[in-house]
Simulated scan of single mutants.
Amino acid sequence: MVSESFLPTVNGVTTSVVRVLDHLAMRGHEATVIVPAAGSPREYAGFRIHQVPALAYRQFPVGLPNSQVSGLLAAFRPDVLHVASPFLLGAQAIASANRLGVPSVAIYQTDVSGYARRNRLSAASAFAWRLVRWIHEGADLTLAPSTTALADLRAAGVPRLERWGRGVDIERYHPSRRTGAGAADLRARLAPDGETIVGYVGRVAPEKSLERLAELRDIPGMRLAVIGDGPAMPQVVRALDGMPVTFLGALGGDDLADAYAALDLFVHTGTEETFGQTLQEAHASGLPVVAPRAGGPIDLVEPGVDGLLYDPASDSDLRTAVAGLVAAPELRARMGEAGRRRVLGRSWAAICDDLLEFYARVMTDRALAGARI
């Protein structure tokens, strides 16, 4: 497995990588992992972690092509290469695997067009998509997490595509936590007068557009909670100045699960999500979700059933959606129950078993192609 991100960096790429590694260990498979050097552990789930040189860019390590990659692949002789969100490091790994005759599965997780739009880089957008096509066309199979991402990749000319979503820990993220001491204590701190708590969970980064939460200013009976940290925190604090908001910082494990359980409504503002893992965690926790009608959330939220999708181009649609649910506790409860039912079949075990089937497919296809030569 070659990943452009790994522990201690926590993001969607890292989360899916460690879950896959957990599953491979549980199923009795062997793996070795190559990641950018950024203080990563030397092993995870019993698997060796190899670090290669990296440069820091906006708080993220960017792995650089290195002769170690080819040598590690040649020494390990894997049956399949898994490349998570490939860029420079992943591109080299795919090329090395092809030279060794090893099939590869590439996981697409970055909204290139959205990033370019936000930064007004139309020329760079065309170049970025050419780069994406160049990287992914070398892989035997590219897996994308949403219908929107699949459509973008098809439009860019990337071949051999399938959809592979993400799992959710339906045991840890559970509505029953709401009655536990951790969630109850947090609710008392966040909403001492019994207000409705609207919360966001995730990185506080420019692409998350958290400044839009200012549109919720002065909604009666509402308090905000922002769970996460990141480079855009100063701008977000300024944008929400004077609002009833609590910044809880980055949380993990049971603390994060309790924080979800303390909320009444989950809101997401970013329009560049290729998936939207926190939306699934919110649903698993029994929360209705309000998110933009863009990218991954389109697949994750059924409007009027388990949440609402708002028009990200509107100046009032987000406020209207949130205000309506803040004023309707019975509707929130019904939507939260529907959201929980929606994710019950998306355990990480089920999702990772699907991934193993994709591995088997590319291995079989490579073997058949070799037999025909």
Rank of each mutant, 00 (worst) to 15 (best):
L88G: 10
L88E: 02
G90I: 03
Q92G: 00
Q92P: 12
A93L: 02
I94Y: 02
A95F: 00
A95Q: 08
A95S: 15
A95R: 13
S96P: 01
A97V: 00
A97Q: 03
A97F: 02
G101I: 01
S104G: 05
S104D: 06
Y108K: 03
Q109K: 09
T110S: 00
G114T: 02
G114V: 04
Y115C: 03
R118V: 08
L121G: 13
A123C: 04
S125R: 15
S125H: 12
F127W: 14
F127C: 08
W129Q: 14
R130Q: 15
L131F: 12
L131H: 07
V132P: 10
V132E: 08
R133I: 04
R133Q: 12
D140C: 05
L141Q: 05
T142Y: 01
T142S: 08
P145M: 04
L150P: 09
L150K: 07
L153W: 08
R154I: 11
A155C: 07
V158L: 11
P159S: 08
R160A: 14
R163E: 10
R163M: 13
G165R: 12
G167F: 02
V168L: 00
V168H: 02
D169T: 03
E171T: 14
E171H: 12
Y173T: 03
S176F: 02
S176N: 10
S176P: 01
R177H: 03
R177G: 01
R178W: 11
R178I: 11
A181K: 14
A181R: 15
G182W: 01
A183L: 06
L190F: 10
Y200R: 00
Y200Q: 04
V201K: 01
G202V: 06
G202M: 11
R203G: 15
